[in-house]
């Protein structure tokens, strides 16, 4: 009874803070969004994409800070520009996407560092973008995230089958009538928008964990594509909501705590998969000949 009362009191206190309410709602929305997009990132073997886009956005943030503009909208535009440039160069240069992402990741990050060197003094805001800060999430941010989630999830819902088909068998999907070119561009744009929105909570350095960790863990536990998608969304919510709770309870940095919780989920899934594999091998070994 005491334990229950204490727990209820803890949650009541945590949710009495508007910044925590905003962090939870924003986190819950981004968890669904990034995990759903992450499924296609995994199928297309582009796990590096989120990382590349997030790090590229540093240049946009630096430009905004120097010009005295709001950093996130500028970072958003910059990320969109980079995503579309990667898409365009993929087609014209025939280089693998990971190579192009690596080019833009490093070049854009370097540009950001050089631009930052022009601004004088300590930049506390910069640190919040690098490592994330739930304190910086405002009501306006929440509305933008909600609107973006609605649009992207709506598009994903409508295009889910063709996106999956083209990610697995691009030529067959194209012959069947899927506009592979536009759908790929739309996927890159959606990923860029969602990743930059996630920067507020997890920061540039860690945001790609929301794309990779739940889908990697979900994939190890899933048998079918349906269970893979549902499992990844569930694990993503579990990762971000329990991560935020733990970070509040022990006064830890939110972004890093969420990633550590996600990593714990991943290792548990890996352990389960390893044990399951070992049991399967033994069971096969015991079968009569």
């Amino acid at each position: 009874m005491d334990t229950n009362t204490n727990m209820a009191a803890f949650f009541l206190e945590m949710f009495s803070y508007p910044f925590m309410q905003r962090a939870f709602v924003s986190g819950a929305l981004l968890a669904v969004l990034l995990a759903a997009l992450g499924v296609f990132v995994t199928v297309r073997k582009m796990a590096f994409f989120g990382d590349g886009i997030a790090h590229s956005s540093l240049a946009g943030i630096a430009v905004a800070m120097l010009a005295g503009l709001a950093p996130l909208p500028v970072a958003l535009v910059w990320a969109l520009f980079v995503a579309l440039l990667i898409w365009r160069l993929e087609r014209s240069t025939r280089l693998p996407s990971d190579t192009l992402i690596g080019v833009f990741f490093t070049a854009s990050m370097a540009l950001g560092v050089v631009l930052m060197s022009f601004s004088r003094g300590y930049q506390p805001e910069l640190l919040s973008y690098l490592f994330g800060s739930i304190l910086t999430i405002q009501s306006g941010d929440l509305l933008v995230t909600a609107a973006l989630s609605l649009v992207i999830m709506g598009w994903l819902f409508l295009s889910f089958r063709s996106l999956t088909y083209m990610s697995l068998a691009e030529d067959s999907a194209a012959v069947a009538g899927t506009d592979v070119r536009s759908q790929t561009a739309a996927l890159y744009v959606a990923l860029a928008l969602a990743t930059v929105r996630g920067v507020k909570i997890l920061g540039i350095i860690l945001v790609s964990a929301l794309i990779i960790l739940p889908t990697a863990a979900g994939r190890m536990l899933a048998y079918s594509f349906r269970s893979y998608v549902i499992g990844s969304l569930f694990l993503s919510e579990l990762m971000i909501l329990s991560g935020l709770t733990v970070s509040y309870r022990f006064d830890l940095p939110s972004g890093a705590t969420i990633v550590l919780v996600g990593a714990a989920i991943f290792f548990l899934a890996a352990a389960w998969k390893t044990m399951d594999g070992a049991f399967s091998v033994r069971a096969v070994g015991r079968q009569p000949r």
Binding site: Y165, L168, R219, Y223, S224, F225, Y228
Partner: peptide, 12 residues
């Protein structure tokens, strides 16, 4: 990759 034959067929 976790996808069943049925799910793969259904894509088309």
């Amino acid at each position: 990759f976790p996808i069943t034959v049925r799910e793969f067929m259904d894509l088309a």
